[in-house]
């Protein structure tokens, strides 16, 4: 029967497609020399801010260790901790320390017998920038920032921010809602992740913010500190007063946390079980030792020498399985 043949042909087609995919899937993915004896698979999940750092570390590590398969997910810091503490993943990327009281985090790890190490891997800082001709907004308080960026904010003029400011239209530039910068900024300024006014120029491409702010006298924008440092000559930076006086963002003030609340440390949480595996220990050690280059490549602020030594010590210290070092 014609249709039977047809069905058979359809089935054969599907089968052939499967074979083709399987054949392609078996492609050797390594390009470098197979000098390393390490093999295995490491799955990492967590913060979308830290994700690019870990992906960069994985990419560099795999050049010499092509048989170690590292996958990085970005389901968020909270979601990642749930997965770490249920044993689904080997390492968590976190943009904040683990919660001691949240049922799904530290207590869950303890209940499931999952031990982990907390290792700082980089620093993250957000800079607020204005136009070169902006003579008035040298320092803003956190209250003023909240007034400008609150979800129900009606502020459209600098005069509304502070009566001593000139009568100049306020144009806002900021991060798009899918970026880690947006999550961090909204949490730090408005107290809740994702809570922000929406009538601003949102872009994931920080160059757009650079151009927008440098071309508009009344503009205010924010992005990662490294972008300000790369465009120092075109923009003014705004110091932030969190109650202890005005602090300008810089590598130093982000590293030591003085630039509050827009600076934070970034962490990885490898499970102790991962560090007990040779490929796991090698990867995490590689990650920490190369953290400066990785941070600079991915536009974050590297660790200080002291932070680096602390992190290295956390990786290398002999650990007794089944105990968390942070409790």
């Amino acid at each position: 029967m014609a249709r039977t043949t047809m069905l058979r042909r359809y089935a054969t087609g599907i089968f052939a497609l499967g074979l083709l995919l399987a054949a392609c899937g078996e492609d050797v993915t390594s390009t470098g020399g197979d000098s390393s004896k390490l093999s295995g698979s490491i799955s990492v999940d967590g913060s979308s801010t830290v994700g690019p750092l870990t992906a960069a570390a994985a990419e560099l590590f795999q050049v010499d260790n092509p048989n170690v398969k590292i996958t990085v997910g970005t389901s968020g810091t909270g979601g990642g901790f749930v997965k770490l503490c249920s044993g689904e993943i080997d390492m968590e990327d976190a943009s904040r320390p683990i919660e001691k009281d949240d049922e799904t985090e530290a207590p869950a790890c303890k209940a499931n017998g999952i031990a982990y190490e907390e290792i700082q891997i980089a620093n993250d800082g957000i800079s607020l920038v204005t136009n070169k001709d902006n003579e008035w907004a040298k320092c803003l308080t956190t209250a003023q920032l909240k007034k400008i960026w609150a979800p129900d904010s009606k502020v459209t003029n600098w005069k509304q921010v502070d009566s001593t400011f000139p009568d100049e239209k306020l144009t806002l530039f900021g991060a798009g809602t899918s970026s880690g910068t947006f999550d961090f900024f909204t949490k730090a300024v408005n107290g809740e992740e994702g809570s922000s006014r929406s009538d601003y120029n949102a872009t994931e491409d920080d160059n757009v913010t650079v151009q927008g702010v440098s071309g508009d006298k009344g503009a205010l924008g924010y992005f990662g500190l490294s972008y300000y440092e790369a465009n120092k000559d075109k923009l003014n930076v705004v110091a932030v007063d969190d109650g202890d006086g005005c602090v300008s963002p810089s590598t130093a003030t982000v590293q030591n946390g003085d630039y509050s609340p827009l600076a934070r440390p970034l962490f990885i949480y490898p499970s102790v079980a991962l560090l007990d595996r040779p490929e796991g220990l090698a990867f995490v050690e590689f990650y920490v030792k190369n953290s400066e280059n990785i941070a600079l490549e991915t536009l974050f602020v590297p660790l200080t020498e002291a932070q680096l030594q602390t992190s290295l010590a956390a990786v290398q210290k002999p650990v007794a399985s089944g105990t968390t070092t942070k409790s």
Partner: peptide, 15 residues
């Protein structure tokens, strides 16, 4: 993303 598909995967599926 919900079921936990990864973002950075440096190899093709093999099965």
């Amino acid at each position: 993303i919900m079921i936990g598909a990864f973002t950075y995967v440096p190899f093709n599926p093999t099965g």
